[in-house]
Design a protein around this nucleic acid. Structure first.
Lengths: 334, 334
DNA sequence: AAAATAAGGTTAAGCGCTTCAACTAATGTT
DNA sequence: AACATTAGTTGAAGCGCTTAACCTTATTTT
């Protein structure tokens, strides 16, 4: 069987209480005893069972990460940065892809609570906050990342999505585009981007595209293609499209190509996220950059400080997007 | 405090043993008692603490997933398919990115053992098998996926990497290429692909490129660019390049563009994996396809059957790659 | 009708750990 | 010298659960 604290205690000729204290560096232990116990621990290759200490109210050093889809580059890059920061402090992540499905998210939360995770980092696009509120009430650390939701009192690391949409629209407007299509999903972040987008339009006395509708399809690329075809088939096709993420933008470019439009000559395309895709897509994608690395680090830091109890008051950290100009947008040629 | 089994027992006026039996559907309990207990469970919203049952030797329903990098699309797609299959059976995944660093992998394994995960699915490119052997000896379920290593007796779901390399080379050779560069990392799967590649070369009496060296750089795209430049600067630059994954291929195409070579006219490029990138890259990437979905499902199925003890004997499932022709390769024009 | 088996439930031990209370011995304070 | 504090250690309780062992009572088996 596995080595337990009893084995160590017996071998070191002390009580298990002493061993426990040595491990956790608590209470008063003489240097001599401490050394002896540590030697035995090494000799027996003893690894404390975290289940047992978790049962005694200690931390599991495990955090639940809820994201819409780990196969989406934005989220896998975000997950990676969160994982890295957590790893520095000994935390592991349980990964849950929720596919924007509320039910799945709730099930995962319930399950992970039973597994006594120390906290939840949530990046999925839920609308219903009941489950989150439940966590907060039960004093389980929750932090939200890469989405915002001002009606709620939770630690949040978000992007200024409104600003992102505003930047995207402003860029296209500056290039002379007046008829701009938008592709978005009906989630909070996208709605904010849309709001920013409309704001810029309004300031320039431009009309919002009448053909807009939220996408429903889960597969972003397909959704991008579909909406693009729809836009280009309309009576007054747009000369530019703002896609609310890079994956959608990839779909737009593909959809455009399929009907013989070249980007950016016939159609300017701007994305959102600045994932690795943006550099790979041809033409390289002009996009709104989210500081992914930073978001991951910040949200993990907040999570850890909630767990350790250092920080009690809630805060909302809003990071700013920036425009990254590449080759998928160009001046409107009349 | 949280509702415990004691609360349920008291409320239902039975012993905690009875409650436990109802929950686990064990032993003989009258319908009446069963119903009563279940009602109370619902009424109190009781969620059994999995730490406690794990301590008693039951499963944690959590599996450790070791991969080189979740931000690499191949692994995030693989992770997603493993997660989905696991989710069907109530399993969660703890995600660990090891960056091909043995030390990191070992640390993660040690840590997750302490957390009593039910098993390990390993997709990282380790060379040293001591840690894995240790797991096998301790009777902890381990399954290896997306890599192979014939010197070891572990359940494995792998791709026929040799065949993959062979297919890639054959395709290029058929197109008339005689001088083909290769970009690979010094990991088992890549070495196998290389072996298959060389085999095809040999059968066609072609020479292996003298400029080959394994990449060391972690960032695949940069590595791809670097090696491409190196190849193209050589006295007899290759007319085609086989990149051992799609990310490297993306780097190759970018590197080629930077020196004014266009793909596939001046340089044919073939990738490996057939991730989402292959469809996004311009030109769309000809690549060797791995059945990612299937691999994920199969390895999770094996893992579950190991955990439940259904299957005792070890097996090695080898899936076959296939060539997906897109636009990045073309006939050699002399 | 006696013996064996099954049904329905309880008691209590124990998984591997943390921590409080308690005790002794040494050191500091006035 | 009398008292308080600190250092060093241990015993034992208990976290929330599972399960073997046990006890009744009801049902079969022979």
């Amino acid at each position: 069987m596995r080595t337990t604290i009893y084995d160590v205690a017996k071998e070191a000729k002390v009580s298990i209480a002493t061993v426990s204290k040595v491990i956790n560096n608590k209470g008063h232990i003489s240097e001599k005893t401490k050394r002896k116990v540590q030697e035995v621990i090494v000799a027996l290759n003893y690894q404390p069972n975290m289940m047992a200490s978790a049962l005694m109210g200690k931390r599991t050093k495990t955090i639940g990460l809820l994201i819409p889809d780990i196969a989406n580059p934005f989220f896998s890059e975000l997950a990676r940065s969160i994982e890295d920061r957590g790893h520095e402090f000994g935390y592991n992540l349980v990964m849950c892809s929720t596919d924007y499905i509320q039910e799945k998210e709730n099930k995962y939360i319930t399950l992970l609570k039973r597994k006594s995770v120390d906290g939840f980092i949530i990046a999925s696009g839920f609308e219903n906050l009941d489950k989150i509120e439940e966590l907060v009430k039960e004093d389980i650390p929750v932090a939200i990342v890469a989405r915002d939701s001002p009606m709620f009192y939770v630690n949040t690391v978000a992007l200024d999505d409104f600003m992102g949409g505003y930047l995207a629209a402003s860029h296209l407007i500056e290039l002379g585009h007046k008829n701009i299509g938008v592709i978005a999903r009906d989630v909070w972040s996208n709605r904010e981007r849309l709001r920013g987008f409309k704001q810029a339009l309004e300031e320039n006395k431009l009309e919002f595209t009448p053909d807009f509708e939220f996408i429903k399809e889960i597969n972003h690329i397909e959704a991008g293609k579909y909406m693009t075809r729809k836009y280009l088939d309309a009576p007054h096709p747009p000369t530019a499209i703002f896609a609310c993420n890079d994956l959608l933008a990839a779909g737009v470019i593909q959809g455009g190509k399929e009907v013989g439009m070249s980007v950016p000559e016939d159609l300017s395309v701007i994305g959102f996220d600045n994932t690795i895709l943006a550099t790979i897509i041809e033409p390289p994608l002009t996009t709104i950059s989210q500081p992914i690395q930073n978001m991951g680090k910040e949200v993990m830091d907040i999570m850890i400080s909630m767990i350790t109890g250092e920080v009690k008051e809630k805060r909302r950290l809003t990071l700013l997007p920036s425009l990254v100009e590449r080759k998928s947008t160009s001046k409107l040629t009349v």
